[in-house]
Design a protein around this nucleic acid. Structure first.
Lengths: 248, 248
DNA sequence: AAGTTCTCACCTAGGTGTAAAGTT
DNA sequence: AACTTTACACCTAGGTGAGAACTT
């Protein structure tokens, strides 16, 4: 993996076939970086199956995500599980209408650090080494598996996904460490029953990362401006909005 | 199909491989009739694949269904779609844990008659020939397809299914004619990607019928006792319950 | 007269941040 | 002092039958 292409190709720990593209294309791009072929590695070409190589993914509510990201997004984790807000939602195109795909979301630690919020400076500080990561879980989109025609037809929403800090959770929620930073990842996987799945697995999926969806997991909001933005935008928090425009 | 076994084996119109067992076993049986092999027909044996032949299905809330059935169950149909109450829920056993199954619910007319409710005698009367049936739809259980291990683990509920009288419905609801009688049917289908699906289709599924789930579709309740039983048992109708035991 | 559609008050079910209490 | 848990008021979202209005 000593590839020196303009777009660096990082391999995530524990899963050598997941390709994590760096943020070269991120600023101003409405579309996520395409799932580019990995550079030749040990004599085998690492190109993607055509049903996967042509897939494009667009993040919904991107401007909202960026508003949060500029403040430093926080996501509540609870024992029972808490939804994300904003919700991870995407619009997909370029799928083979007849092919079957599975959509997965997972969360990788951005670094191995633990954070704390410094109220005097209203900013996040490194507070030491990160805790050991919980066993990695993935969240299947509940519509999986489905045909490409289905996925591209409408917005794909991961609104049922919940975050928890309970290491013993058995509700299938995503287990995260509080006060740690995470990066959501979307995996688009081609269901290919005809080929030798062991041999071709690396060709049949593609990973998309939207840097503006990074967040710090918390058990209570730290940055008051994050709290206010959540209240302003999340319909379920309407009860906490100041009754300004009640005249209309 | 001149089979003269104690359990008569009826074939439903338009789908010669769906086996509809008559009500010989119905009274007192907690379990639905098993999906028995059809009698030999035109020289080919009509036996079921083992993953399907061993499946057993038990109706949940059977005593509630029977309370309604004794009064003559009515189900509301609306333009927007209305849920069923009681809900069609089953407990399944005997599936191959590793095999994949699809679960379907559909509704067949019990007869070709139209009914009307005679208030003076508090009973349903035949009111002429039935209207032409809407194009047949099926309702896939939203968890389909899933492994046998998943299906048998907990109650399988069709609570999201909705009934409509709108012939132009495009929400995927089940279209029924008001004032007509229907019989729900559960189809358990083995997902078999290895065999010649055309040739073996009849071996790969099995149909279960619970006679106590029959009902008449209505746009407004006719029998007042049905209304009262719905109010007494459906949590969403709690607002209409007489506040008798408000002391507790 | 018979059947259908529509609006509504009243529920269930569950997603919010708050503030107090608990934990380390 | 820093962080987590819990109970709670206040929402969204949508499933009920009643009863009036509408249709044929």
């Amino acid at each position: 993996n000593g590839a020196k292409s303009p777009i660096s190709c990082l391999l995530s720990a524990g899963d050598q076939s997941l390709i994590l593209l760096s943020a070269v294309n991120k600023a101003g791009s409405e579309w996520s970086p395409a799932c580019l072929p990995c550079s030749p590695d040990e004599g085998r070409t690492c190109s993607k199956a055509p049903e996967v190589a042509s897939v494009r993914v667009q993040l919904e509510m991107q401007s909202l995500w960026r508003q949060f990201d500029q403040l430093g997004t926080e996501m509540i984790v609870t024992k029972a599980g808490r939804r994300m807000f904003p919700t991870f939602q995407v619009h997909i195109s370029g799928m083979d209408p007849a092919a079957e795909y599975v959509l997965l979301l997972d969360f990788i630690p951005v670094d191995d650090k633990r954070y704390r919020y410094a109220f005097h400076s209203s900013s996040w500080m490194v507070a030491g080494r990160g805790d050991i990561a919980a066993p990695g879980r993935v969240h299947f989109h509940p519509d999986s598996p489905a045909r490409g025609a289905q996925w591209v037809k409408q917005t794909v929403s991961f609104d049922r996904l919940k975050l928890t800090n309970n290491l013993l959770d058995d509700n299938g929620h995503m287990i995260l460490n509080s006060m740690h930073r995470y990066q959501p990842r979307l995996h688009v996987i081609l269901v290919d029953r005809s080929r030798d799945s062991q041999r071709y697995a690396h060709r049949n999926f593609c990973t998309f990362i939207f840097p503006e969806t990074r967040f710090i997991a918390v058990t209570a909001y730290q940055n008051h401006r994050i709290t206010q933005l959540k209240i302003a935008c999340n319909p379920f928090a309407k009860g906490f909005r100041a009754a300004d425009s009640e005249n209309r």
